[in-house]
């Protein structure tokens, strides 16, 4: 649920990276954070990670980023990841509260296609928990780990992943490598732009004002 504040002239938008365990959600967000930190002209908040003692996300990773102005409004994007492991269902569901845009990070390894599908079904049921459906949010797919040498580990062809997850929705997708950064920024730029556009359209067409 985006928040438009008419006094401070701000728009807040929540983007969540969703997907099965070890698909690269945290690596995506870490790459974006590192890139933004390199820009000396921009003040960037710390990346907050609530994880296990190892490297697995327990609750979420989070950081806010300012995207500049649009129509005189300061745009603030909140980037979150969810825990991918099946056992963290309760916390995963909580992170989806108020989501505006979703990046589904799918694992390209052939052996992980069932996990992709299971996680995608799980996403739909968790959105339902918040009385939302995929049509209420902006969604894009990222086919991650495309840099892996196929001679070493078999990868599913992109066409096959499209057929499995995106044949009905036909939304934008990007092949990517979160470790090398390939298409990571392209993914976040695209989802941000599309979500902002949709929020602006919705707030103009359907104003739900807070206050009597």
């Amino acid at each position: 649920m985006a928040i438009v504040n008419l006094k401070d002239k701000t728009i807040q938008i929540k983007i969540v990276y969703y997907g099965p365990g070890r698909s690269g959600k945290t690596t995506n967000i870490e790459f974006i954070h590192n890139k933004l930190q390199q820009n000396k002209n921009q003040q960037i908040s710390n990346l907050v990670s609530i994880d296990t003692k190892g490297d697995r996300t327990l609750f979420f990773d989070f950081f806010p980023v300012s995207l500049g102005k649009i129509n005189g409004f300061d745009l603030k994007l909140k980037l979150y990841t969810t825990p991918g492991q099946v056992k963290y269902e309760a916390t995963r569901r909580l992170v989806l509260k108020g989501v505006d845009g979703l990046v589904f990070v799918a694992d390209s390894l052939t052996s992980r296609q069932d996990a992709n599908l299971e996680s995608f079904e799980n996403l739909k049921s968790n959105l339902l928990y918040h009385k939302q459906s995929l049509s209420d949010v902006k969604l894009i797919f990222q086919w991650n780990k495309r840099d892996i040498d196929e001679k070493m580990i078999p990868l599913s062809p992109i066409e096959e992943m499209e057929r499995l997850l995106n044949s009905e929705l036909k939304v934008q997708s990007f092949p990517a490598s979160a470790t090398s950064g390939m298409n990571v920024l392209k993914t976040v730029n695209y989802i941000s732009k599309e979500t902002v556009k949709s929020v602006i359209e919705k707030t103009i067409l359907n104003k739900h004002k807070m206050g009597n």
Binding site: M1, A2, I3, V4, N5, L6, K7, D8, D100, V199, K202, T203, N206, K207, H208, K209, M210, G211
Partner: peptide, 13 residues
Amino acid sequence: MNTVIREDTVTKV
């Protein structure tokens, strides 16, 4: 559903 918060609401709260 998005929420638009009016200027006078922010000031009052």
